[in-house]
């Protein structure tokens, strides 16, 4: 059973999307914006609301890279691994980042400061290697710039 506060928050979110056609993705984005992840207890609430099964909701959450079932670190750093960024040194940059943080892709540093994720293209293909820090784009990232970004994020 969900607590009263969760039910209240979810009622607000579901009401906001009531008029949309095919509202599940917008609902999940709103949930993630609210909680930072998709808490397990909201799955049943969403399923009941949309008259679909919990399995269907879970299937959608697990299909998309964006939706997480646990909180991320305080900052999310995404590094582009796609071809255009690779042509200007993204692989070395990725290796450096993972080594510095001591985690694998998708991992969070032990101090909880940074979650590092691979992303396949940020559309910054003419000014790569590209990265994104909490939704803010950064281009022409070299080793020094990366170190600065990691330090600012509290690595």
């Amino acid at each position: 059973m969900s607590d009263v506060q969760t039910i209240e928050i979810m009622q607000g979110i579901l009401a906001r999307h009531a008029k949309q056609e095919g509202p599940l993705l917008p609902i999940l984005h709103s949930v993630q914006a609210e909680y930072g992840f998709i808490p397990a207890e909201v799955v049943q609430i969403i399923a009941d609301h949309l008259n679909i099964t919990r399995a269907e909701v879970h299937g959608v959450i697990s299909f998309y890279h964006d939706f997480r079932d646990a909180p991320a670190g305080k900052h999310i750093i995404k590094i582009c691994r796609a071809e255009a960024c690779q042509s200007v040194g993204a692989n070395a940059l990725s290796d450096r980042a993972l080594e510095k943080l001591g985690v694998e892709w998708g991992g969070t540093t032990t101090n909880g400061a940074i979650t590092i994720e691979a992303v396949y293209c940020l559309g910054l293909c003419a000014c790569g290697p590209a990265a994104m820090v909490d939704g803010k784009v950064v281009g022409r990232v070299d080793g020094a710039k990366l170190d600065k970004l990691l330090a600012e994020a509290g690595a």
């Binding site: 599940l24 993705l25 999940l28 984005h29 959608v60 299909f63 998309y64 964006d66």
Partner: peptide
């Protein structure tokens, strides 16, 4: 409508499923 990080949703039929709130 905002996608959710699935490359395959650039394929039109995956995109339509995603837009309907399903797996892409």
């Amino acid at each position: 409508r905002v996608g959710a990080g699935a490359y395959v949703c650039g394929e039109e039929t995956s995109l339509l499923n995603s837009l309907e709130g399903k797996r892409g």
